[in-house]
């Protein structure tokens, strides 16, 4: 039961990260291998606000989220847009964007190492018990989950209830056709990529309240986000949420029953199962 609730709490936070990547990969068509670094950057922002400014880590969102949005917009506009233009087909864009964002991930790690050093970062925020169904859970995890659910809900409404959201969904289905119905594809792609980065950084803030981070841990989160997105089916928000909860449960189970050092192994195991059994995603339609 403890595993179930802790897993769901963790999974809700993961779904936020997966949404960030869905916006970047599913809509803007950029397989962003620097996604995890953006998350760690957000976490560092929260850490800095909490320790140096003595303020709630969630206050960091006021700076981190717009900052990440702007940074990702610039990255798309000046680094990725040329690749989109250079690419003759989707395959080429995939290879180029993978290589470019892989390089960016190292640049970001390098900058964070310079600014924050190579040590571990952790702080104690709301580390007090909170009772759910009679058993105690860390309050910070509960709060993190609620914040994540709130942001996800806002995004879901934004995607399904607004004009911009509709344009983004159209873009996700077919960029060429979206262009034909007067959607400004380059602008919306940039917006989507930037929004994805902002959401990811917000995810980093949320995760930092209860996880220990270091400058080079980004790749692990990139992996997790990618696994969730693929498990859920690319561009499928509902699938991503379910997949995130499954991953959260699997990791929590492995961490509490075997060893906390093996969470990535748990994620990989899930990944392999998905690739072998349902490569089209949990709710994807099988191409039979």
């Amino acid at each position: 039961m403890d595993i179930l609730i802790t897993g769901i709490l963790l999974g809700a936070t993961y779904s936020l990260i997966a949404m960030g990547l869905t916006l970047q990969y599913g809509v803007a068509r950029i397989m962003n291998l620097a996604n995890g670094e953006m998350l760690v950057a957000g976490a560092f922002g929260a850490f800095w606000v909490f320790t140096a400014q003595q303020a709630s880590p969630f206050a960091a969102a006021l700076v981190v989220v717009p900052g990440a949005f702007a940074l990702n917009w610039l990255i798309y506009r000046y680094l990725l847009r040329p690749l989109v233009r250079r690419a003759k087909n989707r395959g080429m864009l995939e290879v180029d964007s993978i290589l470019a964002t892989f390089g960016m991930s190292f640049v970001l790690v390098g900058i964070m190492l310079m600014v924050f050093g190579g040590g571990y970062f952790t702080y104690s925020y709301l580390a007090e018990p909170f009772e759910i169904l009679g058993s105690p859970f860390a309050l910070n995890r509960v709060v993190a989950c609620l914040v994540a659910v709130a942001i996800s809900g806002l995004l879901y409404w934004g995607l399904n209830g607004t004009r911009t959201g509709m344009a983004l969904r159209a873009l996700a289905v077919d960029p060429a056709a979206a262009g034909l119905v007067a959607i400004d594809v380059p602008r919306m792609s940039a917006f989507s990529f930037a929004l994805g980065g902002a959401v990811t950084a917000a995810g980093g803030i949320v995760l930092s309240t209860f996880l220990t981070m270091d400058a080079s841990i980004g790749v692990v989160f990139t992996m997790k986000a990618l696994i969730i997105v693929i498990m859920g089916g690319v561009g499928d928000v509902r699938g991503a949420i379910v997949a995130a909860v499954i991953l959260g449960l699997a990791e929590t189970a492995v961490a509490s029953l075997i060893d906390p050092g093996l969470t990535l192994a748990a994620a990989y195991l899930l990944f392999v199962l998905v690739l072998l059994l349902r490569p089209e995603g949990l709710f994807g339609r099988r191409q039979s």
Binding site: L79, M104, L108, V109, G110, S216
Partner: peptide, 13 residues
Amino acid sequence: VLLLGVAFLLIVY
């Protein structure tokens, strides 16, 4: 790490 990343980006672009 930073320089590796920069070198990589230069090559890709």
